[in-house]
Nucleic acid binder design. Sequence first.
DNA 1: AGTGCTGCTGCAACCGGTTTCGGACCGACA
DNA 2: TGTCGGTCCGAAACCGGTTGCAGCAGCACT
Lengths: 355, 355
Amino acid sequence: MGNGRLTAREIARLAGVSVATVSRVSNGTGQVSEETRRRVLRAIEEHGYRPHHLGQALAARRHGAVGLVFPGLSGPYFSELIQGFESEAVTSRTSVHILCTHLRADSDTEVIEMAHRVDGLAVLGGTLSDETLQELSGMLPIVVLAGGGPPGVPAVRVENTDSTAALTRHLLTDHALRRLDFVGNPSGSPDVSERWAGFREAHRQLGLPLPRAPIRVGLQQPDGVFAAEQLLRRSIRPQGIVCANDETALGVLVGASNHGLRVPEDLVITGFDDTPMAALVTPALTTVRQPVRELAAQTARLLMRVAAGDADRNGSTLVLPTELVVRRSCGCAATTTPGSTTTGRPSAAGLRHSR
Amino acid sequence: MGNGRLTAREIARLAGVSVATVSRVSNGTGQVSEETRRRVLRAIEEHGYRPHHLGQALAARRHGAVGLVFPGLSGPYFSELIQGFESEAVTSRTSVHILCTHLRADSDTEVIEMAHRVDGLAVLGGTLSDETLQELSGMLPIVVLAGGGPPGVPAVRVENTDSTAALTRHLLTDHALRRLDFVGNPSGSPDVSERWAGFREAHRQLGLPLPRAPIRVGLQQPDGVFAAEQLLRRSIRPQGIVCANDETALGVLVGASNHGLRVPEDLVITGFDDTPMAALVTPALTTVRQPVRELAAQTARLLMRVAAGDADRNGSTLVLPTELVVRRSCGCAATTTPGSTTTGRPSAAGLRHSR
DNA sequence: AGTGCTGCTGCAACCGGTTTCGGACCGACA
DNA sequence: TGTCGGTCCGAAACCGGTTGCAGCAGCACT
């Protein structure tokens, strides 16, 4: 009963009408007399008919699906990202295909394969080469998520550089720290690359010697532990560590505590993201808050608008504001207010204190 | 060039053959003379033709996709799960739709909607009611992932009860602990429910009074911090805390350290999963290792076998073995060997030491 | 020359919907 | 009574593939 095996022709026969009328009734389009409509609806209800998705999709020449491409997922950032994206898509009855290219050699082939099954593709920044993005962009709507695409490809991202610079200035100026190290791989993702740029920029602005090379590790907690091991074994220990994200910062925190270092007294640590744990560890993590869910939701919205033809496909890059969150791990007392800082564009709320 | 707009009829015209022949060549089916094949292939290559997915799917009466349904994702567990599932699916050129029912009221509708767009559905245990699963099972292949389904619905899960009981016995017997608390919500997921059962079972086996009610929190790190707050505020403090998974254990570890408690001297903490961080924190976490990726991959394989009709759809439940991993957080010295324990089925490797 | 077999190919039906087009019917009006 | 405008509905084309079946050519064999 109602096992979806029914076809529109079947229903048409049962209701004594033509398939065209069944289609009209089930879609609410065209003119159908009240009496006929009722008869068709009864047949539909009674047999639990639902139009077959493939038939509809083929006729409409749309898949009713979008794709989400990322290298591999890890940590709360990706969880938020996927959920934000998915919950936006589901409101438009659009399904979400996922593809983790995760170190697979033939990822380009897989992406192209996927491109033929969806109406649009959201690609995480840094996952595909600009050439591949260009090629894809020629065949379907593409939006880059968290990163910049080649010209003509729209992107949605967060403000990274200014906020990381503000965070770094806070350490350099308000806490008078000098030896700072950066943990994260700038060539691994556009986000990290921009944060690294902001880190360097702050040094430059203040006329300080440029920092040494970053500790190039991944973005997960264990990577932070590993980075801490590396850093604390060095002859010149840093006074502060600016991490590419909260996860690595939490890892560094663990690594520091493994080494018996006190934070922030012996070592200052900062993150980026403002994940839930950032506020819960001791000391609470000074970080930059980014609206991850919102980022993903905006991307999904933009993608579906572009796919529907409602928005121009020309590179309309959207930049979401971020916000410096000062807590204890930078050395601030619970309620200290550091100098002014600037962050993202629109209503840059500026500084925010917590704890 | 090669923008996918070409149809088979177009190619047929260009190669001077019929669509049937184009189809045969592009699929390598049927008999085609070498000369004709070459001519068609040239036209295909030259114009970058690829068969339209919807047309193929409609004719084949299969979507070439499977769905993955879960409540909402969080932490390394879900990351692994999705990646394991996806990487298995991609090898069969099957795409993966995801659906997070995440507290949405009309999730049943959404699942049914998705059911019409895929060839099979993997549902995380505890996400849907048995009635819904039954109903779905009537319309397409279903496999329950990490949990049991209603009779007739195959499932893939890990061994939870015995290994948690072994872990608990280790604490009760080898470390002579008495007041243990459990952190996790047994009604939240089948996994937690089974682990809670194993926790109680160990007490029963040893003739000890049954433990008090669990601290019902979620499975993420912040939940562990919250649980620690609750527990350490109580008049009767536990000597040990058995957590439903590593994430909450890490959270409890943070909470304990926030309260100035030493682990394992003042408080013993254990987890479940053996996430990468478990080995990296101090003290390293005693836990149970479960093969998450493998779990997901097996589920994907089983689902696709069932969807292809290669396996019977009758509830063939697969249980993957787990393995107790004893580290420092239970009070063991680096190399201590506790009493024997049993874990999963096949080659229950039993106990494993680390650090 | 007739028969049978094999290899290759095209016609047309089919998968399950949507949509255009035009015909049938009805009431209003001249 | 003839014409017109409007509503309702069905036949058929279409979306883009796959496939059963029949036909045809070429060849061997009788």
